[in-house]
Amino acid sequence: MPKRIIAGIQKTGHRTIEGVRRLGQATRFFLLVLLKSGASVRRFNLVVRELYYVGVLSLIIIVVSGLFVGMVLGLQGYETLQKYGSESAVGTLVALSLVRELGPVVAALLFASRAGSAITAEIGLMKATEQLAAMGMMAVDPVARVVAPRFWAGVISMPLLAAIFSVMGVFGGYLVAVVFIGVDAGSFWSQMQSNVDFRIDILNGFIKSCFFGVAVTAVAVFEGYDSLPTAEGVSGATTRTVVTSSLAILGLDFILTAFMFRGL
């Protein structure tokens, strides 16, 4: 059936073109947001306001998840390490897993589904209810006034949330290993401190979370601004934000890890 084959090839081509076009639009929008960030710097209270909605409201989920992830790591790590008689290394295990990987990645995934989706839905609804058009008619650029402050609030929040997640995780690991199981507190901390390096582990984890912050919020604001101005359009855009940014986080994580820890 050559006709069907040709149709199939055409479909693939069409989808590829659409995908590339959308990627181009997203990149252009991202640059536009950066270009119009002047107002966010000059009127920083706009960003502060969004920091509340993006950062403060994400705190609970970050703190609780961090605590539990750390507790599980402590428990599992202890179970495995005590077979080799090195249960005092549980502090190292918990801290390294959190600071290098789980802190930035899990915090970013939670951030994408908590704050990213909220940003998309809010911008999408503002578009659907003509608030963005109204702003444009009042000679106020919606990208500068609405999008840029949300973007920067996300970029600022992400590393802070990831750090809070890691600290809560270390505390959770400490609770389980030292308080509940009875690993020596001194060796728990000293093993951790002698094996976690500031530059290689903590700084790299911090850099990772900065990248994730940019990726998640860039996807969220683009999807919101680009959504169809209908109820289905906004809900579809919200779903796409969570899916796309989660994939972007995991993909970026691999690339960044390969660059940072290569040869170690």
Binding site: A163, S166, V167, F206
Partner: peptide, 16 residues
């Protein structure tokens, strides 16, 4: 809290 967490990571965990 975020900056505090970064400090804890650097000083207490990372032994800076």
């Amino acid at each position: 809290a975020g900056i505090g967490a970064l400090m804890i990571l650097s000083l207490k965990v990372g032994n800076l």
